[in-house]
């Protein structure tokens, strides 16, 4: 790893370009059945690399946890895949095609802390922002769209809170408003950045139920997740990340002690906690 880090960035870039150039492999690398395929993606903030050569093909219809220590690049992975931050190199496809052609099939749930919750809008207003793209430029939000947003709010159990200003919601309720905004987009791939962070037990259960609903509808969710003990319970697949992809695949195969050690390094107290959980 240390060897690779000393490698100049442009070498990594060249390697990625060469790999992408293998056209015969390109189709196999980005299968249309995969909701998200990432090939040789490297992301850097200014000169500091955050993600190196990530290769990942997400399976369809599964709940995938993105797990790794702080600063491992979990959020960055999602944001780079959505073109929110520039990639140094790499190729990302959504159902086999570039993201900008497939925006309608992807819904993004940002971290709750990324917005100002004192903003003068209601829960319903926030959910309708998920429909703005479909409503289109200059067109007003009509009753039809508001009804759709109400249905989405109902799905996360907030039907009674539609007209509440968002600062008057609890943290968990705010998170559910964000989820409703993604649901209303009726996507096939959901990318969620720490939806479980700092929420109450009621919300946690609501999110889990929602994720299972998505899975049974054949939809896929990639979820940045911090709570190691619940990974086995909530998710089918796991993607272990620490600046590079450590391992990815079904939870029972990949979520092992050895892989976690490789992901988290020497943070033993955390590992012991997981070990106890596994022993139970």
């Amino acid at each position: 790893m240390a060897e690779d880090r000393s490698k100049p960035m442009n070498q990594a870039t060249t390697a990625a370009t060469q790999a992408a150039g293998r056209t015969s492999a390109a189709l196999r690398d980005h299968p249309e059945s995969s909701p998200l395929s990432i090939h040789d993606m490297t992301v850097a903030y200014q000169r500091r690399p955050v993600l190196w050569d990530v290769d990942y093909i997400a399976p369809q219809g599964r709940l995938v946890a993105i797990v790794g220590p702080n600063g491992a690049g979990k959020s960055t992975l999602i944001k780079a895949a959505l073109d929110l931050i520039p990639k140094v190199s790499g190729d990302v496809r959504v159902f086999g095609r570039p993201y900008r052609e497939q925006r309608g099939r992807v819904a993004y749930v940002p971290q709750r802390s990324s917005v100002d919750w004192d903003f003068p809008v209601s829960a319903l207003d926030v959910v309708t922002t998920g429909l703005y793209r479909r409503i289109g430029w200059f067109r007003p939000v009509t009753r039809r769209w508001r009804t759709m947003a109400r249905v989405a709010l109902d799905r996360v159990g907030l039907a009674d809170y539609a007209s509440r200003q968002i600062s008057q919601l609890s943290g968990g309720q705010q998170q559910r408003v964000f989820l409703a905004r993604a649901l209303v987009q009726d996507a096939d791939l959901y990318l969620m950045d720490e939806p479980f962070a700092g929420v109450d037990a009621a919300t946690e259960r609501a999110i889990v139920a929602l994720l299972q609903e998505l899975r049974s509808a054949g939809q896929t969710a990639l979820v940045v997740h911090h709570d190691l003990p619940t990974v086995r319970e909530y998710f089918d697949d796991v993607l272990l990340l620490n600046m590079r992809l450590v391992a990815a695949g079904p939870v029972q195969d990949v979520f092992t002690d050895a892989n976690l050690r490789a992901t988290y390094g020497g943070k033993l107290s955390l590992l012991d906690q997981v070990g106890r959980q596994m022993a139970q």
């Binding site: 929110l84 940002p110 990324s114 917005v115 100002d116 922002t129 703005y132």
Partner: peptide, 8 residues
């Protein structure tokens, strides 16, 4: 409200 979401 949410420029990042808008961009996505």
């Amino acid at each position: 409200f949410d420029a990042e979401f808008a961009a996505a």
